[in-house]
């Protein structure tokens, strides 16, 4: 059973990682906590939904997914990036405001995204019209139930994260982005066009979020609240990794996603459930059972613990 949880944790954390990298990038370069990030993921998911409905399967299939789905994935990434850039240009860019005001504005933006999607598609759950697959036979003896779709999600996330790593480490843009995250004023006086770098940050961050949204829709279902519901997990991941650190966000996203899917294991731990029988002075019937409904609450507890012990996160510099 634990192997199965680990496998689904891997799939789920790929999605969280895609969301948290973008949030962390925007946090460090645009310098505010973007509460609309979760809903940017929703935008990507629904853009892919529309595109997939329009182009259809296009024949052929990779890992159980028709080629048309990959077209839809690209469309989701592009639309999420375009929407984010438009929002930046129309709303955030003209505001002469500090990070706190931008933060409050971003929650308004989140509602606007969600409301428009809900008006267009209704509040109900939908699915991509992709054939649901049976779990891969070869892994069943080990108790692991993953489909080819799950493998596709993990592989695509790896490709995206890998190319981001290459971009950040070896390209000119990546060096400029790192410089700007480090010290925006110094970057500016060194001749870096910070406006342009900021725009690219929005494109990359929102694009990754869009892909995360598409995969989330494939992994679960689509609903207008899907991204907002994920926001708490993504923020927990970013804080755990250290705000502003992209690699921290990857690690944080991986851990939060894993822990989230491993929650059922908690109810199997005898120490917690039979605490009354094991400890003296406590009634025998006493026990803590943490059901899967508290998966998000665990992320919150981790986040608060990190803020208490090491507010700069794993990868952040200690104060």
């Amino acid at each position: 059973m634990v192997f199965d949880y680990l496998a689904s944790g891997l799939v789920f954390s790929s999605i969280i990682v895609l969301g948290s990298i973008g949030l962390s990038l925007i946090y460090s370069i645009a310098d505010f906590a973007n509460f609309a990030h979760g809903d940017t993921m929703t935008v990507g998911a629904y853009a892919a939904f529309l595109t997939f409905g329009a182009v259809g399967g296009l024949g052929g299939s990779v890992l159980g997914l028709p080629l048309g789905f990959f077209v839809a994935l690209v469309a989701g990434i592009v639309v999420a990036a375009v929407v984010a850039v438009l929002t930046e240009k129309v709303v955030y860019d003209g505001m002469n405001a500090g990070s706190i005001e931008l933060l409050i504005t971003s929650i308004g933006i989140a509602f606007v995204y969600r409301a428009i999607i809900q008006i267009g598609f209704g509040a109900d759950f939908t699915r991509y019209e992709v054939q649901t697959l049976r779990p891969i036979e070869a892994l069943l003896p080990y108790g692991i139930r993953v489909t080819q779709h799950d493998v596709a999600i993990v592989l695509s996330a790896l490709v995206l994260v890998g190319s981001l790593h290459t971009l950040l480490q070896y390209s000119d843009l990546g060096r400029k982005m790192r410089a700007m995250a480090d010290n925006p004023d110094l970057a500016r006086v060194s001749g870096i066009r910070t406006d342009r770098v900021k725009l690219w940050t929005w494109i990359i961050g929102a694009g990754l979020a869009g892909s995360g949204g598409v995969f989330l829709g494939l992994y679960n279902q689509l609903s207008p609240r899907m991204g907002f519901n994920l926001l708490l997990l993504i923020f927990a991941a970013v804080i755990l990794g250290g705000i502003g650190s992209v690699y921290g966000a990857m690690l944080g996203g991986f851990l939060i996603g894993m822990i989230n899917q491993l929650t059922p294991v908690l109810s199997d731990i005898a120490l917690l459930t039979d605490m009354g029988a094991l400890l003296p002075l406590v009634p025998d019937s006493f026990g803590i059972t943490i059901g899967i409904e508290y998966a998000n609450a665990i992320a919150f507890v981790i986040m608060v613990a990190v803020l208490l012990v090491r507010p700069n996160g794993i990868a952040g510099e200690a104060t």
Binding site: V91, T105, I107, G108, I109, V112, A123
Partner: peptide
């Protein structure tokens, strides 16, 4: 009306 209200709140905040 629910999404319209949500839209109204969002637009008002922004």
């Amino acid at each position: 009306v629910a999404p319209l209200r949500l839209l109204l709140i969002g637009v008002l905040i922004v």
